[in-house]
């Protein structure tokens, strides 16, 4: 039987050896991504240099980079970053300590959950910045103000995620625990906490992002020492506008770094979970 396209190769897929294409593929993707970033930066630079966007409002990326480089050598810079990081970590820890036990309790007890559901629903929709004026009155332009906001903002996602995690405990695991008459402490330690852990981890990630946002925001508006305060000060003087943008970059970098860190930590601690999950989906 004659074949119409006998000389046509197998749909553009030439025979290629094993693992090498995978690495080659990754390099290619990385290259394209870098190129896109470069194009974006170049466009930004061009927009400012050509005058399309006034330099008094938006600084060129090269100027920002230069200023950032200079700032890295100053004490002022590092103490600002230190303040922000400090408040962030403490705030996150406080909300962890409050939200997780509470979440476990409310998740486990249907009665308590239903009693507190409306209250939690209401409190969690309050935009955290609403507390800033009050906090400023109570504590002034000090770290406690920012801490109050951060703690209030981060508690809710953590609480909700923990409760959700408890609800998601596999009923089969519960049955196993009851069948083998596990003590309550053992149940909590060996079944409940590990099952809820992935959800708590997601909550930590959400809370971390929100905390950074709130720390910087309260520093900005409240004049509390830190990255936010620097931004607020820098925006007032034309010569300092590049520094303002530099600080924005720094805050972003902090956020990205912490997110990566948490993801890596999550992957290590919960390695059993991702493996377990992928087996279930197979």
């Amino acid at each position: 039987m004659t074949v119409a396209f006998a000389d046509r190769p197998a749909r553009g897929r030439a025979k290629r050896p094993g693992p090498a294409p995978v690495i080659g593929q990754r390099v290619k993707v990385l290259g394209i991504q870098t190129a896109c970033v470069a194009v974006l930066l170049a466009a930004w630079q061009l927009a400012v240099v050509s005058g399309a966007v006034p330099e008094s409002e938006v600084t060129q990326p090269t100027a920002v980079a230069h200023r950032l480089w200079d700032m890295l050598a100053t004490q002022e810079f590092w103490s600002a970053v230190g303040e922000t990081a400090h408040t962030w970590v403490i705030g996150l820890l406080v909300s962890l300590v409050v939200a997780v036990p509470l979440g476990l309790l409310l998740g486990a007890s249907t009665l308590l959950y239903r009693m507190f559901r409306v209250t939690i629903d209401f409190l969690r929709t309050i935009p955290p910045v609403v507390l800033l004026p009050l906090a400023l009155l109570l504590y002034g332009a000090r770290e406690q103000t920012a801490l109050l906001l951060v703690a209030f903002g981060s508690v809710w996602p953590l609480l909700l995620q923990t409760m959700y995690g408890v609800h998601q405990v596999d009923p089969v695991s519960r049955d196993v625990a009851r069948a083998y008459q596990l003590r309550r402490l053992d149940f909590v330690r060996s079944v409940l906490l590990p099952s809820a852990a992935p959800f708590v981890a997601t909550g930590v990630r959400i809370a971390a992002t929100m905390s950074l946002l709130l720390v910087v925001g309260s520093e900005l508006l409240g004049g509390i020492p830190g990255i936010g305060a620097q931004i607020a000060v820098d925006q007032t003087s034309a010569a300092q506008i590049p520094s303002m943008y530099a600080y924005v970059v720094v805050a972003t970098a902090l956020g990205v770094a912490v997110n990566l860190l948490i993801v890596r930590l999550e992957r290590r601690v919960l390695s059993w979970h991702s493996a377990h999950k992928s087996q279930q989906e197979a």
Binding site: M1, T2, V3, A4, A6, A10, R11, R13, K15, R16, P17, G18, P19, V22
Partner: peptide
């Protein structure tokens, strides 16, 4: 259907699934 063949590419190389179906 005339002489239909289908190849799939996989990590281990090419796999011929259909060979000259008429």
């Amino acid at each position: 259907v005339r002489g239909l063949s289908q190849r799939y590419q996989s990590r281990a190389g090419d796999r011929l699934v259909l060979d000259g179906v008429d």
